[in-house]
């Protein structure tokens, strides 16, 4: 895992969160933040994931992300997928 790449994906997810949830824009996003706690409903969560997948040109089945519990785990899953793991 290159830390820089991981940090880039985290920054990407953060910007996607800001886009879908403009009310938290500028707020610090931490790895253990849950999207639900940031104000995301189920559609918002799907939109955030889709925006990240699109930016990374990833194809991930929704079921593969079903166990993801917080922002950090989402970033980990996207990172793993983008490195073919």
């Amino acid at each position: 895992m290159t830390e820089q790449r991981h940090a880039e994906i985290f920054a990407l997810v953060r910007s996607n969160i800001y886009e879908v949830l403009p009310d938290v824009e500028g707020r610090e996003i931490k790895s253990d933040d849950r999207l639900t706690d940031l104000g995301a409903n189920s559609v918002d969560r799907a939109e955030i994931v889709m925006l990240a997948m699109e930016a990374l040109s990833l194809h991930i089945q929704r079921v593969e992300l079903s166990g993801v519990k917080n922002v950090g785990e989402l970033v980990d899953a996207l990172y793993a997928k983008s490195h073919g793991q």
């Binding site: 559609v43 799907a46 889709m50 997948m53 699109e54 194809h59």
Partner: peptide, 12 residues
């Protein structure tokens, strides 16, 4: 050509 990224809200 990039249907995989269709925004989920389209479903609504």
């Amino acid at each position: 050509g990039r249907l995989d990224y269709l925004p989920p809200t389209y479903g609504l």
